[in-house]
């Protein structure tokens, strides 16, 4: 299955820039680095908790570049009024994680 990723190239570049600005260690951002960024969105904490659940695909408590892009994508969509899904739709799973 070769479904195009929901995160478009230009959006991914923007998310990558934010990712790099947070000083990832070994390609990963820990929860305490990502948390303030997501809280900045002013979304309710329970919504952000679900965003984290959906984007930390391997559940290691850290986000690598593609997982972070999923988190940011969900936050931006939520800010536009779209509900955060209860589970990650296949087109939103990064190609590197399928």
């Amino acid at each position: 299955m070769d479904i195009p990723w929901f995160v478009k190239a230009e959006e991914k570049m923007k998310f990558d820039t934010i990712f790099d600005s947070l000083f990832p260690v070994g390609g990963y951002l820990t929860g305490d680095k990502v948390k303030p960024v997501l809280l900045n969105s002013k979304l309710p904490v329970d919504v952000l908790g679900r965003v984290w659940e959906l984007s930390d695909i391997d559940r290691d408590g850290m986000l690598e570049r593609d997982e972070f892009a999923v988190a940011m994508y969900l936050v931006y969509r939520a800010l536009e009024g779209e509900p955060v899904p209860m589970s990650l739709p296949p087109p939103l799973v990064p190609p590197s994680k399928r």
Partner: peptide, 13 residues
């Protein structure tokens, strides 16, 4: 979706 017993890996829980 949520691991049993809550998720210690989720900084928002």
């Amino acid at each position: 979706q949520y691991p049993a017993g809550g998720s210690s890996t989720n900084p928002f829980l």
